[in-house]
Amino acid sequence: MTASLDLTFTLNGDAKTARVAPNTLLIDFLREACQLRGTKRSCDMQICGACTVLVDDRPVSSCTTLAADIDGAVVTTIEGLGGPDGLDPVQQAFLDHNALQCGFCTPGFILSVKALLHANPAPSHEEIVEHLNGNLCRCTGYHKIIDAVESLVRP
């Protein structure tokens, strides 16, 4: 496969251009070409949400999305949220509520919650739980993750 595509997009606030093979997955493009390893690979089949990134503020499984599909889009990875000195409120809530253990699913969860609150700033408890069903965590048992999101909605 020698053909390639030219992409213009915004990544974590910066305007970017890139040339990719048409079959490049977004997860590989982010992790390898962009060296953004906070996006995690787990199920490879859009089940677990560990690879979630935001494309135009919507949550997307980067394991089953082509890099070509981000042409013209605004992409946010975990690295595009706050750094250690200025955490995003969602990151802070996860820390405050101990909503992480091994941390492998955490970037995906945080971005998924960002997308939820963007689309629906005041979700009900049921809407929070329903939304989080798209992300799997094998460590925490979810209660503290749900608590973290609740704290952002109903402080």
Partner: peptide
């Protein structure tokens, strides 16, 4: 010294599969 929980919420924690 920073801590690893902060690294985990900011995507900076290096996992085995990130090596």
């Amino acid at each position: 010294t920073g801590n690893e929980r902060l690294d985990k919420v900011t995507g900076r924690a290096v996992f085995a599969s990130d090596i």
